[in-house]
């Protein structure tokens, strides 16, 4: 497949999925396409003949999932890095915390591992664990909520 064909295919993938940016890499070839304004590729595909055919701007979509809190009284402990989430400090051990446990700033709530780099995540707040958002051994992203804590006043 020629580069031009690949670019065409990528543009159609972008349109189908309403993406604003795409990047691929194969061996030594790297292609990156970015739309500077919404509907840019539509404009190219359908030249302006009449105002009625002008494509409507695409509906604004959030690129990142937004985590909405049910209650304002709940705070999140988020992942400091990309990695794998472990609830226990060592395999076979008890989980660091369970729902209902009370934690303080220094309480280690889980381990995130990325390529043999372990990170003990601390609660960094005082409160009660009300939810554990990720399953043991699951992959997590930077900034992903791991725990919901209901803060208690000191």
């Amino acid at each position: 497949m020629s580069i031009i064909d690949k670019v065409k295919q990528l543009i159609s993938i972008m349109n189908e999925n309403e993406l604003s940016e795409i990047e691929i890499q194969e061996d030594v070839t790297k292609i990156r396409i970015k739309k500077t304004e919404v509907g840019f590729t539509h404009t190219v595909a359908s030249p302006l003949t009449a105002s009625s055919t002008y494509p409507q701007p695409l509906e604004q979509k959030h690129q990142m999932p937004v985590f909405v809190q049910e209650s304002k009284n709940v705070a999140e402990v988020v992942s400091p890095m990309v990695g794998t989430f472990y609830r226990a400090s060592a395999p076979g051990s008890e989980p660091c915390v369970n729902v209902g446990d009370f934690v303080n700033e220094e309480t280690v709530v889980c381990i995130i591992e990325a390529m043999k780099i372990m990170n003990e995540v601390k609660a960094e707040m005082v409160g009660e664990v009300v939810d554990i958002c990720v399953n043991d051994g699951e992959a997590v992203e930077f900034g992903q909520p791991l725990f919901c804590i209901r803060p208690s006043t000191k």
């Binding site: 390529m115 043999k116 780099i117 372990m118 990170n119 003990e120």
Partner: peptide, 19 residues
Amino acid sequence: PNDILIGGKKVGGVLIEWE
């Protein structure tokens, strides 16, 4: 990523903790 081998046998390794 982290095992050190000689002739396919393990002689050492590295683990890192990030504080």
